[in-house]
């Protein structure tokens, strides 16, 4: 018995050695991204503790003193701050609206492009549609001001010359929200189409041919073949977007805002910038960032669970 297991163990050790001898290069290559992630992602992550400590510029995160209330001082400070609560509300509102309008838009565009028989027109449209993706929000906000300002914006000059009332796109909070959402869709729709178009090329053309033989109309084909073909892509992208529901970009709201609409435009990233960076409350900023990450992970995991329950593959 004993001799046998010993022999088995030796055989196993031999096998492992042979395996490593054969494949060590693959593991060595894996080391490069691993080291990258350790150095640039995991080591900086140790600075999350700044959220629980009293920040000092001269000390490392390990040496800083713990914050009051067993380290939770800055979380209490954030949650008892009305601006923070408004920022949470605004972030959720703008992201939810962005999701409702921004998420289906590229799917629709991809399907429409896919149905176009004239290929050159399709290509040109696609290129034109994804160009705005390369514009920074600073440039877009400049364009928005030149086009949409009430007195000297081009759109309103045209409206006025047509005898219509000008629209205050940027200086009424309600209007501003729609301008913000619309500009977001406009900027990203073309770019997000690319991934759907790639998925569409993966659908077996025989399916369409068979449906045509059966007499299916164009809409029926879209409903029964195209959309099911895109389903897993849609689900994965939806899970990823839900993971960012409380995350917020900085440059977009920062560039588009003005003093009249701060009641809806102050999102978490702006809060972090105003209180944390400009107000040099680094611990508070880190605490808010940490909070955002935790909520993001919760949404991501739950969305993934739900997707798997509905028989989709999910992210993992």
């Amino acid at each position: 018995m004993l001799a046998e297991t010993r022999m088995q163990k030796a055989a196993k050790r031999y096998k492992t050695r042979m395996y490593l001898k054969r494949y060590w290069m693959l593991y060595a290559m894996l080391l490069i991204p691993l080291v990258y992630f350790i150095i640039f992602k995991y080591v900086p992550m140790t600075y999350i503790q700044v959220a629980f400590k009293k920040f000092s510029i001269t000390k490392s995160a390990w040496e800083m003193e713990w914050a009051k209330n067993s380290g939770l001082e800055y979380f209490i400070k954030a949650f008892s701050n009305r601006d923070f609560l408004y920022a949470v509300r605004n972030t959720l509102m703008l992201n939810a609206l962005g999701l409702v309008f921004g998420f289906p838009a590229p799917i629709l565009l991809a399907i429409v492009l896919n149905e176009l028989p004239y290929r050159r027109f399709k290509r040109i449209t696609q290129t034109v549609a994804y160009m705005p993706h390369f514009l920074s929000w600073i440039i877009i906000s400049g364009l928005a001001l030149q086009l949409l300002a009430t007195r000297f914006g081009l759109v309103n000059i045209v409206l006025r010359n047509m005898g219509l009332e000008p629209i205050q796109f940027l200086d009424k909070p309600a209007n501003w929200v729609w301008t913000y959402v619309f500009l977001g869709v406009w900027q990203s729709v073309g770019w997000n189409t690319i991934i759907y178009l790639a998925a569409l090329t993966g659908i077996n053309p025989e399916l369409y041919e068979a449906a045509a033989v059966d007499g299916a109309s164009r809409l029926r084909k879209i409903w029964h073949i195209t959309l099911p073909g895109l389903r897993s892509t849609i689900v994965i992208l939806l899970i990823l977007s839900l993971g960012q529901i409380i995350g917020s970009e900085f440059d977009r709201p920062y560039a588009l805002t003005n003093t009249l609409v701060t009641s809806v435009s102050n999102v978490l990233s702006i809060f972090v910038y105003n209180y944390g960076i400009k107000g040099t409350q680094q611990s508070l900023a880190t605490a808010v960032g940490f909070f955002q990450s935790v909520i993001g992970v919760i949404f991501l995991v739950n969305a993934n669970l739900i997707a798997r329950r509905f028989d989709e593959r999910g992210l993992w």
């Binding site: 601006d83 003093t259 009249l260 701060t262 105003n274 209180y275 400009k278 107000g279 040099t280 508070l284």
Partner: peptide, 20 residues
């Protein structure tokens, strides 16, 4: 401490919103 810049922004908001 840490609030002066925030208040300066709020001041601008009060002034602008009131005039509008």
């Amino acid at each position: 401490e840490g609030i002066k810049t925030v208040l300066a922004d709020k001041r601008d908001v009060v002034l602008n919103v009131s005039i509008n």
